[in-house]
Design a protein around this nucleic acid. Structure first.
Lengths: 215, 215
DNA sequence: TGTACATCAGTGAACGCGCGTTCACTGATGTAC
DNA sequence: TGTACATCAGTGAACGCGCGTTCACTGATGTAC
């Protein structure tokens, strides 16, 4: 029962979307090819018409997750970054909604410790997603100086660390405090947009568990 | 071929030590019970004389890893923290040696994204290890104010984030820059000990790939 | 102190199960004439 | 435009393999007398 070329392309797209969500939700190793195909109502055999192996899928799924994440919308076509949008998105990054919905969130935060044990293509896709995060942070701390770059790296590390530790801990107070403390720290480190972010924030955070993603 | 009680206790200790190293080196799910027992020259069956299940081992192995890590030595018996020692250890935390030897390093940095999918006892052991890290950071940023606590949380998030992302990325320059930038950021956030740390640092960092652990 | 017996640390084979991957097959789609 | 045939997306069963766990067994250790 062959399908049209359009159907096949759509299937491939759905495999990637589902894989990227399942990997972010449950991790890479614990998610099987059968889990992914089953979630789409398909059987395992067909998977290999679209990808060479599970390993090959992982790298593509991280790329797909990175594309899917709203963070990209902060970047204009010329590679510039809208400051207000960037600050709102980074604030969203440190929200409970993002923490509680890894399946539609940042792949860097979802997979960081697992990726160290994966293949080179996977780690390259992951690195690309890291660079995308750093570009958005560039909207808050611009500049080509070494100091500006160092501050961006600090912010990226703190933001990813906060989300990942907030998800890992069983201490709910600590989990919330981590997000709040780093949100404060990020605003402190980018003083020029602090007020802007504070006023934009409530409208985005209002829904509490709202997804970080639009689509 | 029964062994003495001392032998049995020693075997249990060796299982924990080996498991905690293998989990930190390769992750939890990819390491099997047979891997652990095999590394000790034992067979799988014997494992269940010491632990109820692999899941039960994981929580204990994280505790063991946390105990093993040198960070604890910064704490005095009464719970106080030696400032100079703390600053040197936190500097070591952000060293290449720590990044390149996760098997003897901080379990929080090694397992952070995986632990979110583990059982409650495992996440509790992980949380305890996080609190231990925060206590040591308290040696640099003491105080009971909300602001001091927020700064400690920011530093913890940035430090863990830097190590974990430094391990995950395929970009070696970015990997080194992350460690350096957060080292700078931590010193900036704890100005009173900045000079002390700068003078202590070289002696500890000299060996480059030196382990973070003493033993 | 010596003996008889219960305990149990560790062995090694087996259990059911799910994994990633392969493959013969199907039938609708795409193409050549 | 119609027909004959090649292509290939998806099926479903099977492959070898390693997983976590169980269990009958062993023999040295620990204990009761």
């Amino acid at each position: 029962m062959r399908r049209s070329r359009e159907d096949a392309a759509e299937t491939r797209r759905r495999i990637l979307e589902t894989a990227s969500r399942l990997f972010r939700a449950r991790g890479i190793t614990p998610v099987s090819v059968a889990d992914i195909m089953g979630a789409l109502g398909l059987t395992v055999g067909g998977f290999y018409r679209h990808f060479e192996s599970k390993e090959a899928l992982v790298a593509k799924a991280i790329e797909a997750a990175s594309d899917e994440t709203r963070l990209q919308y902060a970047m204009s076509r010329e590679g510039g970054v809208d400051t207000k949008l960037a600050s709102a998105l980074l604030d969203d990054y440190l929200s409970r909604g993002h923490r509680d919905h890894p399946e539609v969130g940042c792949p860097v935060a979802a997979l960081c410790s697992e990726v160290a044990h994966e293949s080179l293509p996977t780690r390259e896709a992951f690195t690309q997603a890291m660079h995308r995060l750093l570009e958005v942070i560039g909207g808050l701390v611009p500049g080509e100086t070494k100091d500006a770059r160092d501050r961006r790296l600090c912010m990226a590390a703190a933001m990813v660390g906060a989300v990942v530790l907030s998800r890992a801990t069983s201490d709910e107070v600590l989990a919330d405090d981590l997000l709040r403390a780093v949100r404060r720290g990020v605003l402190r480190a980018a003083p020029r947009v602090a007020r802007t972010a504070r006023t934009i924030r409530p409208s985005l955070a209002a829904s509490g568990h709202k997804s970080v993603r639009t689509k």
